[in-house]
């Protein structure tokens, strides 16, 4: 998985503008005015299905309607890769699914229909723009021990990048 911060609001510029006006806003208010745009690549669709449930954010994701799927582009959970019998079953299943996908596309089925058979393990790419307030909620919920390993990894990376860009806003927020 690769997560990159494409930009974040210049909080210092906002603070300077407020200071010039003789105004002050608490961190709690400024959280609504700071946004981050992230690029997220090579996480599974399992995880992006969980991510986009956080509705107060903007997402644009690679569409399977138009791009062809390849069996190299899948995420394998550690619980499967560490278990030989499970890994064999996983790889056999993927082989069968991708073979059926390729046969359907070769037979003239549009990619948008052939994709119905594809696994949610498939790797995907997306951009996400989110306010500091929404991101804090995501980090709080998705770094919890009850959250799944892959979205925990994603939330931790989002947190690290946001904290690095605007440490003033993240002082009291800790991962669970």
């Amino acid at each position: 998985m690769r997560v990159k911060l494409l930009y974040s609001t210049d909080l210092k510029a906002i603070e300077r503008a407020l200071e010039a006006k003789g105004a002050h806003l608490d961190t709690d208010v400024l959280m609504d005015h700071v946004v981050y745009m992230f690029e997220i690549e090579d996480c599974s669709r399992v995880t992006t299905h969980q991510l986009v449930r956080h509705r107060v954010a903007s997402y644009d994701q690679e569409s399977q309607r138009f791009s062809a799927a390849t069996k190299e582009g899948v995420v394998t959970p550690p619980s499967i890769s560490a278990n030989e019998a499970a890994l064999d079953a996983y790889e056999d299943g993927l082989k069968a699914v991708y073979s059926a996908y390729e046969k359907m596309v070769a037979a003239g089925v549009p990619k948008e229909d052939a994709r119905y058979i594809l696994p949610t393990a498939i790797k995907t790419k997306l951009v996400m723009t989110v306010s500091a307030r929404s991101l804090m909620h995501i980090v709080w919920q998705r770094t919890a021990l009850q959250a799944q390993w892959e979205i925990r990894e994603l939330a931790a990376q989002l947190h690290g990048l946001a904290r690095g860009a605007t440490p003033e806003l993240w002082g009291e927020i800790v991962e669970r």
Binding site: E39, D60, E62, A68, V127
Partner: peptide, 16 residues
């Protein structure tokens, strides 16, 4: 550029 990147993100397999 940011808007164009977001539009292309949906239809491209390429990295940003």
């Amino acid at each position: 550029m940011t808007i164009a990147v977001a539009m292309r993100r949906c239809y491209s397999t390429k990295t940003i």
